[in-house]
Design a protein around this nucleic acid. Structure first.
Lengths: 236, 236
DNA sequence: CGAAGTTAAATTGTATACAAAATTGCAGCC
DNA sequence: GGCTGCAATTTTGTATACAATTTAACTTCG
């Protein structure tokens, strides 16, 4: 594995370090449980420890890294992937996106029509992609991601979007890890997407919110079952 | 205003700076829109800029401070208090606490009984406090806070609790600012607390979640009306 | 007297030096 | 052979020095 050499303009270094590390963690190249050493990262990215510290702190606050500076016996390491955490995390994502869907259902009719059209198109592509004999996992993931981001971007306020940006990528850690085993059970998810789209189309805020929450609760249950069979990563 | 002089044990400095500043912002002593200067804070707290930077970064990520390092014309300052932000923030708190209430409703019967007893007691005290001729605002705030924290602590997982700890105190900024005008309309809130308690008692997860979300949506509406009459702070 | 350009001050971003703490490895002892 | 205690190394926490950029103030010209 080679890290990209960054020598960016002043003021952007922490952001570059952050997204580089986050990508490594999300994609699993930095494995759950792996120790994080400031010096190493700084050396590899040709930056001083100062911007690295900023990036690490943010990663820790968002849950990619666990740290506990006051407690002994705990130095920074990549957060493990556990069944309980997955279920809690998916519930939270469901709430955040559920709230966005609620707002989406109360958008002006014109905006809402455009939104519904897009959602239908994305979901159709998702269905087509899932029907192929050897589905491309990256494509399936991207389309599901697109579907949800479409209505979040359309309706969420700045605060909710910030929360979404901070929390959602963490679900990607689980999705990427177990997607190969999940792609079979994609049919119910596509059905659930239709419920969401329908509720938004009819302007039923409560139903839209509930549909999204249901979608994520079911996804959590499906993922939980998979984790139970193949085991957790990075926690022992 | 005098800041506490901190010279704490190694490793705790950023946390002390963080909570000191957060308290100042929440209580309004650091007014919305006020500029934040690293050197000043470091000097006043007898610390170097390094721990201050850590604290500021966290405060920014949580929304107490706005920053935009890439954009010109934008140096760190205390986040303003606006009507739209209040409504969005309250919705988010409602989702987080709603999710906790949902879990609370599915707790084991024994734990749930104890929880319900406590909630009833807190709400009774809240009602009594609100009936007095000159209600103590701090007391009213504390009791409402206690009520919600009771079921969050009882049922939320580590992730949800972290989110709650990061988001909830920001609502306090609004509550403290406008509490004097809100305390009159406390009766409906007490009624809503009863619905929450009832749903948890009966183990109805959906109803519990809905009741909490309703409570916060109504609170947002009440607060929004107040802000409309007395104006926003720190945004111009 | 006002406006624009230029210079000085202030403030943040970055790097690095130093100190404290902890982990690891090793040696000696039971 | 394993365990305990000590020492050396690693690693993080803190402070500070320096650089770059922005903000402001002042001067000069119209």
């Amino acid at each position: 594995m080679t890290l990209a050499r960054v020598s960016p303009t002043r003021g952007a270094r922490p952001a570059v370090v952050y997204s580089t590390l986050r990508e490594l963690i999300v994609r699993g190249q930095l494995a759950p449980g792996a120790r994080i050493v400031e010096m190493d990262i700084a050396a590899r990215l040709r930056v001083s420890r100062t911007p690295v510290r900023g990036a690490l702190q943010r990663l820790q606050q968002e849950g990619y890294i666990v740290h506990s500076p006051t407690l002994r016996q705990s130095r920074p390491s990549v957060a493990p992937l556990t069944r309980d955490d997955a279920i809690e995390l998916f519930s939270i994502v469901g709430e955040i996106e559920g709230l966005a869907a609620r707002s989406a259902a109360t958008l002006a009719a014109l905006l809402r029509e455009k939104l519904v059209t897009d959602l239908l198109a994305i979901n159709a592509r998702l269905e087509r992609a899932s029907r192929t004999k050897t589905p491309k996992h990256d494509l399936l993931y991207d389309l599901d991601e697109q579907f949800h981001r479409r209505y979040v971007d359309a309706a969420a306020g700045p605060r909710l979007r910030a929360l979404h940006d901070a929390v959602k990528p963490q679900a990607e850690r689980y999705e990427r890890l177990y997607v190969s085993l999940l792609s079979r059970g994609l049919a119910p998810s596509i059905r659930e997407h239709e419920s969401i789209t329908g509720a938004i189309r009819h302007g039923d805020a409560d139903a839209a919110q509930r549909a999204v929450q249901t979608n994520w609760r079911n996804a959590a249950a499906r993922l939980g079952a998979v984790i139970d069979t193949v085991g957790e990563r990075g926690s022992w």
